[in-house]
């Protein structure tokens, strides 16, 4: 498995990784203070952006946060929930300590991502968008492309990309994440074989 990591992610991260976050209403208000508007139309346009900001910051949008967004932008919480349930990027439950994306875009599909999805369901009993019972890892299957198709099939764990990943490697990756040991380096995982010129 070629192990490709982004910068600053190479050091062993203390376990468990702190991806899981509770929503602090004060922080939500602070985030929203940047969303100013001149008229009704602009306020409407900002609802999605505001929710995205909250979702990005905490990994999910809590009912309380939805209420705060609704009040800030002069709309109803029902409307906000209509958006949260329509747009696939929003989560209405907290993420696990780790967050894993399994790319199921077309390039990854033809290179075998189906096997990874089946491993996730069969081996770990997790469905798309769910979190393992110990709250360690939440998994999202992405239909869009993660943009690294040359490593297909690709899995992204927190900030690190892995690929090409086999079902067995996914299992070991998940087990390690569940065990909270993200020190990939200790096993001497190198950058592995690269695509040729």
């Amino acid at each position: 498995m070629a192990h490709a990591e982004s910068a600053h992610a190479v050091l062993p991260v203390p376990a468990p990784f702190t991806g899981r976050q509770d929503v602090d209403p004060e922080v939500v208000r602070e985030l929203l203070s940047h969303f100013t508007f001149d008229d009704y139309e602009e306020a409407q346009e900002l609802i999605l952006s505001a929710l995205q900001e909250v979702n990005e910051h905490f990994g999910w949008v809590s009912p309380e946060a939805a209420q705060i967004v609704a009040e800030h932008l002069n709309t109803t919480v029902n409307r906000v929930f209509g958006l949260l349930t329509f747009y696939a990027d929003f989560r209405t439950e907290p993420r696990g300590h780790h967050h894993m994306l399994i790319c199921h875009g077309m390039a990854c599909y033809v290179m075998g991502s189906q096997a990874l999805v089946q491993e996730m369901q069969g081996g770990f009993g997790i469905d798309d968008g769910e979190t393992t019972a110990d709250e360690q890892v939440s998994i999202q299957v992405v239909n869009g492309c993660l943009g690294v198709c040359d490593l297909a099939p690709v899995v992204k764990l927190d900030d690190e990309y892995f690929g090409p990943v086999t079902a067995e490697e996914l299992t070991s990756l998940l087990n390690r994440a569940i065990g909270g040991q993200r020190a990939m380096r200790e096993k001497g995982v190198s950058n592995g074989p690269r695509p040729t010129k």
Binding site: A7, L146, G147, D150, L151, R194
Partner: peptide
């Protein structure tokens, strides 16, 4: 770019 970041470009830049 997003494809090279996945392969360590930010480390190279640093």
């Amino acid at each position: 770019g997003s494809s090279s970041i996945a392969k360590g470009a930010l480390d190279v830049l640093d």
